[in-house]
Amino acid sequence: MATAEELDCRHLLCPLPVIRTQARVARMAVGAELQVVVTDPGALEDIPAWCRVHGHEVVATEAAGDEQRIRIRVGGG
């Protein structure tokens, strides 16, 4: 698996995790991966929805306690 950059969005409420993800992805190359760490369960809906409308791919989501990790592969947009 490619190494992913990590973005810490813990304790941020939606839509802030989406906004941060959007800003980070804008600076990343197509095919690169980003792991977003969130605590607001709403982000589990919003980040994948944001990815779908922008053509990015959610490769994995995993929960660890109160935290969720969403791994995104940047698409061609």
């Binding site: 939606c14 839509p15 989406v18 369960p41 709403g42 809906e45 919003d46 929805a49 944001w50 409308v53």
Partner: peptide, 8 residues
């Protein structure tokens, strides 16, 4: 539902 309306 926790969806974001604008995204939806």
């Amino acid at each position: 539902p926790k969806r974001n309306n604008a995204l939806w």
